[in-house]
């Protein structure tokens, strides 16, 4: 999987690159409009992370160029400007997603995976994690080939955690992913706990080989049971 990151902030760029490499992506970087344009024209990528506020040009023009070249690269816009206009314009121009800064690295991860998955599998393929099979489009979960009833939020939490498996996912990242941005000012995210508790119980009842562990002070982590060497 090849990902191009177009971002003018060197620290942000380095950070995203470092993270994506731990997820086993091949990462190319561009730190301005011109070098971004070069790479877009010359190569194909599975996914492009595009900061639209570049010092020497508007990232939306790069998007326009990409679409004019009729390239199939998926594009996720990342912007410090949380503006509805930019979002609408970007999505109209053919971007696959829009993420406002600051974002959780786990959220970025989930979005990239979802964008790539949509493109590759046409939404038909079952995702497999140990003995758990999931069809995201049909919102279907099978554990040991037995269907499991999950409510909408439990399902969304499971997917989000699976996308970030073996990674600590903060409570606020989960809350924002499932409940939306509006929840970001709540006192605490303990209300997530009841959903997690139910989800965990169902996983255990069906003897799934994945489990959700709590990480004190941070959030939760989805772990593969055979990785535990128990």
């Amino acid at each position: 999987m090849k990902i191009l990151v177009i971002e003018d902030e060197p620290e942000m760029l380095g950070l995203i690159k470092q993270f994506l490499e731990t997820e086993n992506y091949v990462v190319e970087e561009a730190c301005n409009f011109v070098s971004g344009m070069d790479k877009i024209v010359s190569y194909d990528y599975d996914c492009i992370l595009l900061d639209i506020m570049l010092p020497d040009g508007n990232g939306l023009e790069l998007l326009q160029k990409l679409k004019n070249l009729e390239k199939a690269d998926s594009v996720i816009i990342i912007s410090a400007k949380d503006s509805l206009d930019d979002k609408v314009r970007g999505l109209d121009l053919g971007a696959d997603d829009y993420l406002a800064k600051p974002f959780h690295i786990t959220e970025l991860n989930a979005r990239i995976k979802s964008v790539i998955r949509r493109k590759k599998s046409d939404g038909r393929k079952m995702l497999e994690f140990q003995n758990v099979k999931i069809n995201i489009e049909e919102r279907l979960v099978l554990i040991n080939n037995q269907p499991v009833e999950l409510n909408r939020k439990e399902f969304d939490i499971l997917i989000f955690l699976l996308m970030n498996k073996n990674r600590i996912t903060s409570k606020s990242a989960i809350a924002e992913n499932i409940w939306g941005d509006y929840i970001d000012q709540s006192d605490d995210f303990d209300f997530i706990y009841s959903q997690i508790k139910n989800l965990r119980k169902k996983l255990r009842d069906f003897d799934a080989k994945i489990d959700i562990s709590s990480v004190y002070g941070m959030g939760y982590k989805l772990i593969m049971k055979n990785n535990l060497n128990i």
């Binding site: 902030e9 620290e11 942000m12 950070l15 995203i16 470092q18 993270f19 410090a80 400007k81 800064k101 600051p102 974002f103 959780h104 690295i105 786990t106 990674r167 600590i168 903060s170 990480v215 941070m218």
Partner: peptide, 19 residues
């Protein structure tokens, strides 16, 4: 506006660190 980027970097770095 200027605060958004360093904040994002700080949060993300810490998230990576926690892992």
């Amino acid at each position: 506006h200027e605060l958004q980027t360093p904040l994002a970097i700080g949060i993300n770095k810490l998230e990576l660190l926690a892992g």
